[in-house]
Simulated scan of single mutants.
Amino acid sequence: MNYVPLSNSLDFEVHIISSAVISIAALVISYFSIPAAAPSFEAAGLFGIDIGKPKPTDGNPPHVPEGLGLVCGIVYLASLMLTDVIHSDSFLTDKINVLYMLSSSLLILGFADDVLNIRWRTKIMLSIVSSLPVVRHFWGDTTVSVPHLSIWHYFFGDKLTVNLGIIYIMFLVCVMIFCINSINIYAGINGLEVGQSIVIGISVIIFGTIGLNKGGITTVLPSENEQQGGVIISRSKDLCYFAIVTALPFVAVCLALWVHNKYPSKVFVGDTFTHWAGATLAAIGILGKFPFGLLLFFIPQIVNFVLSFPQLIHFLIPASIKSHLPLPFQNCPRHRIPRLDRTTGKLKYTPNLTLINTVLYFLGPMKEKTLTNVLILLQTICCSIVLLCYGMDWISI
């Protein structure tokens, strides 16, 4: 099937307006579907206890329905189907289909994790398998443009492009695995998982909008001109529109979920949401050919992963050595969240290696709502700096 470039089919504005209408509908449907579905999740045994809240006097903390990210994921997939119909005559169809495949597979994996509590090593392997459709999309297309940085030209000379081969494929797999799991380990307080996803999703939309003003996202295309090294560097507005039309419904369903998940949470998102959200954002970035730029939007998640890594691999440390190491290196509890001071109602840091505990260590105890706002503000600042640098041409991503 020959796909017609979006720029040669319908007007760009028509596609954006139609995607905005779909996104608004997705927001409304998700907003009302989540509370409607919550009792069914709780009745099926999918619920949690908010351990960051004081226990009631009768000693029976209320159950909070968990796994409601499934509702948002389903509505998002339906939105993608409608978007696919609208773009049925454009080359975006192929990319949307791959995104649909990955998003649905990770939605199933996340829900299975909520129900079966899948082991980490198993989830990593399943994440690798799930990333294959996206990686296959790039097989044979591993030439990238060199950023406008002196250090890069020191290594690559005056070449404008470099073929990374299998290294680039491995990089894309690592991006997929990281994004799928990074939101999951940067969680534990009301609204944080959804809040950070909304900020990253909005950043992707702004990134695509800036890219349109720049003439499109930089891409490397094959060329028979040997003087150009067998490739040509061009800009694609279609990739910008792909990022926008797929991120719009993502942000919409996340906003609906955030209303119910923000402090004090009426529902929990579960691993269903964290795995699905990370996979969807990763797929948009990779298929939109800005994986490096996407990673820059994940700076707080990268910091949290670096802090968490020694604790996450504690099982690789021999017991004889582990017993002499500080507490965080000895084990990795399922919940590495801060501790509630019941006298002040504030959260205090615990000896667990996370960005959340690091913020509490330096800024002092906070109310849970305040802590969430601080962390989302940090995410917003990091993403805003990246967008500013991109818009001012200080970085090329």
Rank of each mutant, 00 (worst) to 15 (best):
A256L: 08
L257G: 01
L257E: 06
V259E: 14
V259Q: 14
N261R: 03
N261G: 00
K262L: 10
Y263N: 11
P264T: 07
P264E: 14
P264C: 05
P264K: 07
S265D: 07
S265P: 03
S265H: 06
K266Q: 11
K266R: 09
K266Y: 08
V269T: 09
V269F: 08
G270S: 02
D271M: 06
F273K: 09
T274I: 04
T274Q: 08
T274M: 09
W276M: 06
A277R: 00
G278F: 01
T280A: 06
L281I: 03
L281Q: 04
L281W: 07
A282N: 03
A283G: 10
I284F: 07
I286Y: 13
L287W: 07
L287M: 12
K289R: 14
F290E: 07
F290H: 10
F290D: 11
P291F: 03
G293P: 00
L294V: 02
L294W: 03
L295G: 04
F297L: 05
F298V: 00
I299D: 01
I299Q: 06
I299G: 04
P300F: 01
P300D: 01
Q301R: 03
V303H: 00
N304F: 03
N304R: 06
F305G: 06
S308I: 00
Q311S: 08
Q311E: 02
L312K: 11
I313R: 02
I313D: 00
I313N: 01
H314I: 02
L316W: 09
I317P: 03
P318M: 12
P318L: 14
A319H: 09
S320I: 13
S320W: 15
K322V: 13
P326D: 11
L327C: 12
L327H: 12
L327E: 15
Q330C: 11
N331P: 14
C332A: 13
P333F: 02
R336C: 01
I337M: 13
I337K: 10
P338S: 11
P338Q: 13
R339T: 04
R342Y: 15
T343L: 05
T344G: 07
G345D: 05
K346C: 11
K346E: 11
L347H: 08
Y349D: 10
T350I: 09
N352Q: 04
N352I: 02
L353R: 02
T354A: 10
I356V: 09
N357C: 09
T358S: 15
T358C: 14
F362H: 11
L363D: 03
G364S: 10
G364C: 13
P365H: 13
M366Y: 13
K369T: 14
L371F: 00
T372E: 06
V374D: 11
V374K: 06
V374H: 10
L375R: 02
L375H: 01
L375K: 00
I376F: 00
Q379F: 08
Q379K: 13
Q379L: 15
I381L: 10
C382D: 04
C382P: 08
C382I: 12
C383E: 14
I385V: 15
L387R: 10
C389M: 13
G391F: 05
M392H: 07
M392N: 06
D393Y: 06
W394E: 11
I395L: 08
